[in-house]
Amino acid sequence: MIYVRTCIAVRYLPKARVMCRSLKRYHPELKVHVVLVDKVPKWFDPKSEPFDNLVTIEELGLPNLKSWIFRYSVLEMCTGVKPFALKALLKNPDCEGVFFFDPDIVFFSRLDDLLDDLKHNSILLMPHQLKPEGVHEAIVDNEICSLKHGIFNLGFVGVRNDEQGRAFLDWWTDRLDRFCWADLSQGLWTDQKWINFVPVFFEGVKIIKSSRFNVAPWNLSTRNLVGSARSRRD
């Protein structure tokens, strides 16, 4: 079974709902597991939500949790908790692998190609850019931005439950336990800059280069978008 994980603060609940509903429109068989880094609000009812499971950051068993939370901002916590959350899912005996998706993603088609890629690779990554920019403004806005924040967009990562996948999560967890700072002066940008090392440090890494994924402001200048803006009620 492939599990799906996302991590949110309470303010990101509306986005997580959209992400989950759009994913289940195409893959109702996938179960979405949410990590909440805030305290659970009194008004919050998980049973009324479109996702399948909610755990709090306390339930992940992070060592020295109070000092870890004190060390980081909300942005740093939501990104730094990712590998801990993914490792927790890999402990399930039926877990073949896990996808992480940021809560501010919307799906417009099935993910069969990604599911197939995870069967044959240990780690799946998506770069921010797939093609060189053609004008200086876009180079500054997109390519230089990726040099500062990380070549790969950690709004997505796929990890197979095999030796290399588990080794990757052990390494990533160790780094983000202490060094998940949003501090460009130190060469760090939360979880993303560390992932530049992954194709060098680990085997079984596939870089996803399909232009249908990861469509975002940092690469719109090289994407050709087609389709209808017709609204959907479901």
Rank of each mutant, 00 (worst) to 15 (best):
V40C: 13
P41D: 11
P41I: 12
K42R: 14
K42E: 15
K42Y: 08
K42C: 07
W43R: 12
P46M: 09
K47Y: 08
K47N: 12
S48I: 06
E49I: 12
F51Y: 15
F51A: 02
F51N: 02
L54P: 13
L54W: 08
T56E: 10
T56A: 09
I57T: 05
E59W: 03
L60K: 00
L60M: 07
L60A: 03
L62P: 02
P63S: 13
N64K: 14
N64S: 13
K66M: 06
S67Y: 07
S67M: 10
S67N: 12
S67L: 12
S67G: 03
S67T: 12
I69A: 00
I69S: 01
F70C: 01
Y72G: 05
V74I: 14
L75K: 15
E76G: 10
M77T: 00
C78I: 13
G80F: 11
G80D: 07
P83G: 07
F84E: 06
F84D: 02
A85V: 01
A85E: 02
A85M: 00
L86V: 14
L86Y: 03
K87S: 13
K87G: 06
A88L: 05
A88R: 10
A88M: 08
L89A: 10
N92E: 15
N92S: 11
N92H: 13
P93A: 07
P93T: 01
D94Y: 10
D94S: 11
E96Q: 10
E96K: 11
G97W: 05
G97D: 04
G97T: 01
V98I: 14
V98W: 04
F99G: 08
F99V: 08
F100A: 05
F100I: 00
F101M: 04
F101P: 04
D102W: 10
D102L: 10
D102F: 09
D102R: 14
D102Y: 11
F107Y: 09
F107V: 00
F107I: 00
R110Y: 08
R110L: 01
R110S: 15
L111R: 04
D112N: 09
D113M: 03
L114W: 04
L115F: 05
D116R: 09
D116P: 00
D117S: 09
L118W: 02
K119Q: 15
K119E: 15
K119G: 02
S122T: 12
S122A: 11
S122P: 01
I123C: 03
I123K: 05
L124D: 01
L125D: 01
M126G: 05
P132C: 00
P132A: 00
E133Y: 10
V135G: 02
E137D: 12
E137M: 04
I139P: 00
D141W: 06
D141Y: 07
N142I: 03
E143H: 05
C145N: 14
C145S: 14
C145F: 15
S146R: 06
S146T: 01
S146F: 00
H149V: 10
G150T: 04
G150Y: 08
G150R: 07
I151V: 10
I151C: 05
I151G: 00
N153T: 00
N153H: 13
L154R: 02
G155Q: 09
F156T: 13
V159S: 08
R160Q: 11
R160P: 01
R160W: 03
R160T: 09
